[in-house]
Write a protein that binds this DNA or RNA. Structure first.
Length: 228
DNA sequence: AACATGAGCAACCGCCTCCTA
DNA sequence: TTAGGAGGCGGTTGCTCATGT
């Protein structure tokens, strides 16, 4: 089936949004609600913006219920658990984190959590220890009740191929002699003021498996996962 | 001070799915 | 039943800025 282009590319503006564009988009959506994105640019007085671009801007940045700022440890743990169960289905993961967007979570995963798991010797794709540990028998491959719970409660994507058939969230694989450290709270992210990158990086020193997931502190409580 | 490098994130691209006529 | 439109989603890109040399 032929696909018509979303927008007339030659006449669309790309790149960063201006304050004025944001204001127009916000007031339009507030007045008329979400939806009809293709018609929105014309109706909202943004004739040079693509409808998809407007939707993305609203969903990822302008929506009033967005929770901006650093992810909490609870959120970290939940993201990891949901990713283990659902894979890269960011929208479904985002649906379980009020105020967070799929794009935000995806970015956070790619820049923080995935790297942190790697640092712990865990493959961020399969959520399994890297080969050496698995071969050494550290990994038992048993399923995890929490993951099973999430998987059974979430609707299956129709064409999604089966992935990670033997998930396990018991990630406490770090050596027991590691010092426990209190993870410092990240400062809230302010628009226009980027956080100090190195400071951020220093905070990303690998945490212990169970601690990272919040299992030790009982933070990963799947009763709190509100199902639709 | 100037340049190089890398991290973070907003935004784009193109495919997929759903809905409707 | 099916073609086409519209919205949604995940992968990727590229810009900005902090930090290191």
């Amino acid at each position: 089936m032929g696909r018509s282009p979303c927008c007339e590319k030659a006449h669309t503006t790309k790149g960063a949004w201006t304050r004025e564009e944001d204001d127009r988009l916000s007031s339009h959506v507030r007045a008329h609600g979400e939806g009809r994105w293709r018609a929105l640019p014309r109706l909202a007085g943004l004739p040079h913006r693509c409808g998809k671009s407007c939707r993305l801007r609203w969903v990822n940045y302008l929506r009033p219920d967005l929770k901006r700022g650093a992810f909490s440890r609870d959120e970290d743990a939940l993201i990891v658990a949901l990713h283990a169960a659902l894979g890269n289905r960011w929208a479904m993961i985002a649906a379980k984190l009020p105020g967070r967007t799929d794009n935000e979570i995806k970015n956070y995963w790619n820049t923080h959590l995935g790297r942190r798991l790697k640092g712990m010797g865990i493959d961020p794709v399969t959520h399994r220890p890297v080969v050496a540990a698995a071969a050494a028998g550290v990994w038992d491959g048993d399923g995890d009740a929490a993951v099973s719970f999430v998987r059974t409660q979430m609707p299956e994507r129709k064409k999604a191929p089966p992935r990670c058939p033997d998930l396990n969230l018991e990630l406490r694989i770090s050596p027991p002699w590691q010092e426990e450290e209190e993870m410092p709270q990240r400062a809230p992210v302010k628009r226009d003021v980027k956080p100090a990158k190195r400071e951020e990086t220093q905070q990303l020193k690998p945490l212990q498996g169970g601690d990272f997931l919040g299992l030790r502190a009982g933070m990963l409580d799947f009763r709190r996962i509100q199902m639709k």
